[in-house]
C-alpha cells in the first residue's frame, strides 16, 4: 500500500495522480447521473450510447492518422457520436411510433461496427482494447481538463433542473398538465447521460460503463429512498470503488477498469446480502 502512496507523490509518475483525481472528480457526475439512470431504468439506453462511442473514437483515430490533424482527439470523437446517439434515442422516445428496443439494439451494434472498421483501416493502429476496457493510467493533463469541464457542465445542469427531473420522472403526465415541456427534460437527461459516459469511457472503457454508472446508484438505492441522499451515497460509493480499484490494480498489476468493476460487484453483492438479512 505504501508504494502506491509513494507513487502518488513521485513527480515522475504523474499519471497515477491524474488517474486518482480523474476517478474522484468523475464520481460526482457518475453518482448524480447514475441515480437518474437507475430510477428511470435507462441502463439499456446508457449501454447503447457507450458502445456507439467506439464509432466516434475509430473515426477520430482514422482521420487523425490519414490527415495528420491533431484537433480531433478520440475523446472528442466519442463525445460527438454519443451526443448524436442521444438525440436519435430522444427523438425515438418522443415520437413513440418505433420500437425503442429495436432502435437501441441497432444503434448499439452499428456504432460498434463503424468503430471497429475505422480502427481496422487506420494505418498502424489495430488494438481497440484500451477503449473497450479503459485505461485510467493513460489519462493526460489535457484529458483531466476535459473531464473537469464536462463534470462542471453535468453538475450545473443536474442541480439547475433537479426539481423538474424529480417531478417529471415520478409522473410525466402530471408535469405536462402543469405546463412543463417534459420532452425537453427527457432530451437534456439523455444528453447528460451521453456526457457522463464519455467521462466513464476514459476510466473503465466502453464495455464496462454500464456497471460503473448503475452499480453505485443501485447500492445507494438499497440504503435510501430519497433522491438527493441516493445521489450523495452514489457519489461516495463511486469514489470509493474507483480509488480502491486504482490502488488494487496498481498493487496487483491488473487492469484498473476490471478491478474497479469487480470491487463494485462485490460491494453490490454485500449490500444485497445486508438487505436480505435486515429486511423486516
Amino acid at each position: 500500500m505504501t508504494e502506491f502512496f509513494y507513487a502518488l507523490i513521485n513527480p515522475e509518475v504523474s499519471f497515477i495522480r491524474y488517474a486518482l483525481i480523474a476517478g474522484v472528480l468523475s464520481s460526482i457526475a457518475f453518482g448524480i447521473i447514475g441515480t437518474f439512470v437507475v430510477v428511470k431504468k435507462m441502463t439499456y439506453i446508457a449501454g447503447a450510447i457507450s458502445h456507439t462511442a467506439l464509432g466516434g473514437i475509430g473515426f477520430s483515430l482514422w482521420i487523425t492518422s490519414v490527415t495528420g490533424i491533431g484537433f480531433f482527439p478520440p475523446i472528442m470523437g466519442a463525445l460527438l457520436i454519443s451526443l448524436i446517439t442521444g438525440l436519435i434515442i430522444s427523438y425515438t422516445i418522443i415520437k413513440g411510433d418505433e420500437r425503442l428496443d429495436s432502435i437501441i439494439g441497432t444503434i448499439w451494434a452499428v456504432g460498434m461496427s463503424i468503430g471497429l472498421i475505422f480502427i481496422y483501416i487506420t494505418p498502424g493502429y489495430g488494438d481497440p482494447m484500451s477503449y473497450l476496457f479503459g485505461n485510467i493510467l493513460l489519462i493526460s493533463a489535457n484529458d483531466l481538463a476535459v473531464i473537469i469541464v464536462l463534470n462542471i457542465v453535468i453538475i450545473l445542469l443536474s442541480v439547475l433542473f433537479h426539481n423538474q427531473f424529480l417531478a417529471i420522472f415520478f409522473d410525466e403526465e402530471f408535469a405536462q398538465v402543469r405546463g412543463v415541456k417534459t420532452h425537453w427534460y427527457q432530451i437534456i437527461l439523455i444528453l447528460l447521460i451521453s456526457l457522463t459516459i464519455i467521462l466513464l469511457i476514459t476510466i473503465v472503457g466502453i464495455v464496462m460503463v454500464i456497471a460503473l454508472l448503475t452499480i453505485p446508484a443501485s447500492i445507494a438505492g438499497i440504503f435510501s429512498k430519497k433522491m438527493k441522499v441516493m445521489m450523495f451515497l452514489a457519489v461516495i460509493i463511486c469514489a470509493l470503488v474507483t480509488v480502491t480499484g486504482l490502488i488494487g490494480s496498481y498493487l496487483l498489476n491488473l487492469p484498473t477498469g476490471s478491478v474497479t468493476i469487480l470491487f463494485s460487484g462485490i460491494l453490490y453483492l454485500l449490500a444485497n446480502i445486508f438487505k436480505f438479512f435486515t429486511k423486516k
Binding site: Q164, L166, F170, D171, F174, R178, K181, M227, M230
Partner: peptide, 23 residues
Amino acid sequence: HFDNKYPITVFEVILSGLIKPFG
C-alpha cells in the same frame, strides 16, 4: 401508474404540484 421504487418523499410529491417549467 407509479413506480413504487421511485425515491421521492410524500412532501416532495405534494411540492411537485407547484412545479414550474424552469427554476
